[in-house]
Amino acid sequence: MTDGRGLRLYAILYLVFLYAPILLLPVFALNDATIVAFPLSGFTTKWFGQLAQLPTLFDALRNSLIIAVSSSILATTLGLFAARASSRYDFAGKGPIMGLIMLPLVLPEIIVAMSLLMVLLGMGLNLAVWSVILGHTLICMPFAIAILSAAFQSLDRSLEEAAYDLGESRWSTFRLITLPLVMPGIVSALLISFTISMDEFIIAFFLAGAEPTLPVYIYSQLRFPKQIPSILALGTILVAVSVVLLTIAEYFRRRGIAKVGGKDTGGFL
């Protein structure tokens, strides 16, 4: 196990690299200095307090929440159709159709944002919260589908057949058997989509018009050095919320796998 120990050290260093920015976030958010640098000057919570005095921040937060809730529900609902279809049926053009739906997973967001923007502007529409919802639904869908497909695939098909065989209709089979068993996957997909939408910047930046989301607001404030400590405080809150949501999502994902007696293969992707 000597090579194992070396690898372990490397893996831990790698985790430190991964977490370095996130761990520094609260350090400087609680540091009593406007300049983000060492040495630290002292402990303060005033940057968090200042957040309350930024009215536009709350508008942005409201926009972000509306967008994140709407697009996570839309993406999960649309994802349910696609995940069910792809894990259950063979249909003509399945490859290309699923490929198109999953494309935003690899497509640079700038391309998604620009092409949508061109179409919306071309149609003479005014950008607002709804246009961000459309874009976010598009990019959340592949993630929701990945999670939901895993949930559907770990579902033994004969469970549904058994319920149908025992006299239930297609709909009541779905309600009594399928839905409870994939529910953890649905919750997980909702939470992940919500998190993605809350954090997403590029599409929101180009499609929000005059109704900025939280990341867009943060971006606009980054130009003002004076604002940076409060932005870090805001970032700390956002990261904390994300971590909590992701932990809940992970809990549901695992419970879903355990529930149907499957084996955990790990990871959201």
């Binding site: 649309l78 994802g79 159709f81 696609a82 069910r84 279809a85 792809s86 259950r88 049926y89 063979d90 249909f91 003509a92 053009g93 399945k94 159709i97 699923m98 198109l100 739906i101 494309l103 935003p104 391309i111 998604v112 620009m114 092409s115 949508l116 061109m118 179409v119 071309g122 459309l134 874009g135 639904t137 598009l138 869908m141 589908i145």
Partner: peptide, 30 residues
């Protein structure tokens, strides 16, 4: 073929339509 393929296509169609309208069409526009 119609029945087997149809069920899958019908089920995937809302999602596919969404991707077609908001992804494929804009990409084609570009």
């Amino acid at each position: 073929r119609r029945s087997e393929s149809f069920a899958g296509l019908a089920l995937v169609s809302p999602t596919a339509l969404y991707a077609l309208l908001l992804l494929a069409a804009p990409l084609a526009t570009i």
